[in-house]
Simulated scan of single mutants.
Amino acid sequence: MDRVGFVKKLDEKLKMIRTENDYTQDKMAEILGMSKKTLVQIEKGRSTLGWTGAVALCTIFKDSEILQMTFGGQPQDIILTLAFNGYENNYEKTMGGKVWWKDVESKGVYRIQQNLISQHYRILDGEDRRISSSFDYDYIRKRLQEI
């Protein structure tokens, strides 16, 4: 997945997220900081949220079940992976991949997992803290070997 694919998925889910939260088009447009006309055009497939709008949507509606089902968990992980090549943060604790992840490879207490929906990879330590994430499997394998 790249930024274009990410934004396209969100364009397609915008109306469902609005409906999930029981918002009118007017209210949703206000929340996202756009005109109702723009929102309608996006919902009809004639316009797009763009990267910034997609990030805003995911940030504001981070607890949306539709977003979680679309991306296999919190979309913020994918946003950071797309924004930075080979994203590494402050070793954020995860749930350990109980729902949307499969183990791919391990080395000691570290393991590579792949998201079943978005297909991106991450390295977790023995306490299920995220060490690194990327869509590039070769990069993730290299990082695992460096640990």
Rank of each mutant, 00 (worst) to 15 (best):
80 L>C: 07
61 F>T: 03
91 Y>P: 05
23 Y>T: 00
143 R>F: 03
69 M>V: 12
82 L>V: 05
130 R>V: 09
30 E>G: 10
39 L>Q: 04
135 F>D: 00
144 L>T: 02
117 I>D: 01
67 L>W: 10
116 L>K: 14
122 R>T: 04
103 D>C: 12
66 I>P: 07
26 D>S: 13
126 G>Y: 04
95 M>I: 11
116 L>M: 12
61 F>P: 06
27 K>E: 11
96 G>P: 06
1 M>I: 02
43 E>C: 12
77 D>K: 14
145 Q>S: 10
145 Q>K: 12
15 K>W: 08
97 G>F: 07
31 I>S: 02
20 E>M: 04
16 M>P: 01
103 D>P: 11
75 P>H: 07
84 F>L: 12
124 L>V: 03
103 D>N: 13
82 L>Q: 05
45 G>A: 09
5 G>I: 08
114 Q>N: 06
50 G>Y: 05
136 D>F: 00
134 S>N: 06
18 R>M: 10
116 L>T: 09
115 N>Y: 02
53 G>D: 04
110 Y>W: 11
3 R>A: 02
20 E>C: 03
66 I>K: 09
86 G>E: 08
24 T>Y: 08
90 N>T: 15
33 G>Q: 06
88 E>V: 11
124 L>T: 02
83 A>Q: 12
93 K>L: 11
87 Y>F: 14
3 R>P: 00
99 V>S: 11
141 R>M: 02
62 K>W: 13
21 N>F: 13
66 I>A: 09
100 W>V: 05
124 L>Q: 05
3 R>W: 02
40 V>C: 09
69 M>K: 15
119 Q>K: 14
41 Q>N: 14
84 F>M: 11
30 E>F: 09
75 P>L: 08
11 D>T: 01
126 G>A: 08
71 F>D: 07
114 Q>W: 03
12 E>G: 01
142 K>V: 05
26 D>F: 12
92 E>M: 13
92 E>Q: 14
32 L>N: 03
36 K>S: 04
24 T>E: 07
67 L>F: 11
136 D>S: 01
85 N>A: 14
125 D>S: 06
130 R>S: 08
139 Y>A: 06
32 L>S: 02
61 F>A: 05
21 N>G: 06
61 F>G: 06
5 G>S: 08
143 R>I: 13
60 I>F: 08
16 M>L: 15
24 T>I: 10
129 R>Y: 07
88 E>A: 14
43 E>G: 12
97 G>D: 06
122 R>P: 02
37 K>E: 07
67 L>Y: 11
76 Q>E: 15
55 V>G: 05
48 T>A: 04
63 D>L: 07
142 K>G: 02
34 M>W: 00
146 E>H: 02
120 H>N: 13
129 R>W: 03
44 K>F: 04
103 D>Q: 14
91 Y>C: 13
23 Y>S: 00
27 K>R: 14
31 I>E: 03
